[in-house]
Design a protein around this nucleic acid. Structure first.
Lengths: 102, 102
DNA sequence: TTTTTGTTTCCATAATTCTAGAATAATGGA
DNA sequence: TCCATTATTCTAGAATTATGGAAACAAAAA
């Protein structure tokens, strides 16, 4: 993952509403949730939610699929895992143990 | 890690200068760098750097130690690892394999 | 004490981001 | 076609964040 992408992903998560959306979708798993369900569960106005979902889609954090009048959103786990790799890459000049969790 | 903390940490990383600072400190490892060295290497004005380092200190992303007139900054690996754990916790309703890297 | 080096705080400006109402669009059923 | 449902775009105001120069501050050396 490139730095520019990592920044976009981090910005996509560094906001209360969006982090809540992402965590909810991560917990739900691959089947995801309809936009309306997310709005109801998190008590976010539809327009505000749409603003954040657009941001997250652009960052690749979520993927969407239309089903009739509804749109199903789910977390993109690959991007999350890529971010984790990015943050821990090139750690400590190659000494992997130096920054590993204890 | 609590959601509020995770948000602070994510915000601490979701900015071009700060991500650059963090990555540099991660690569350097535990010995860290003096503020002036960071400013020189990344070509960031001292006042701007100080602003960001203060932000990152508050988020726990870096720790500092004065040595004479200089201040040495180094990455806090525990916080980074905590963030990684937070993001992957409670994934897929407990089905750990569902969101693991392939 | 005065000077020098390194860093931070203060401040004004600029830029970005968040919020949510009104209007608009897309889908599918009657 | 008309209507109900669901979701998005447009818009503008509010709030937050970033930038960098001037000044202040801290520590060590002259």
């Amino acid at each position: 993952m490139e730095t520019k992408t990592a920044l976009t992903v981090l910005s996509g998560l560094a906001q209360e509403s969006r982090l809540g959306i992402f965590r909810l979708l991560v917990e739900v798993g691959h089947q995801g949730l309809f936009a309306g369900e997310i709005a109801t569960r998190l008590e976010i106005p539809a327009t505000t939610l749409s603003f954040h979902l657009k941001n997250m889609s652009g960052a690749g954090l979520v993927v969407s699929e239309r089903q009739g009048t509804s749109i199903r959103y789910s977390a993109n786990f690959d991007v999350m895992n890529g971010l984790v790799s990015y943050l821990t890459a090139n750690c400590c000049g190659g000494d992997l143990n130096a920054c590993a969790p204890k």
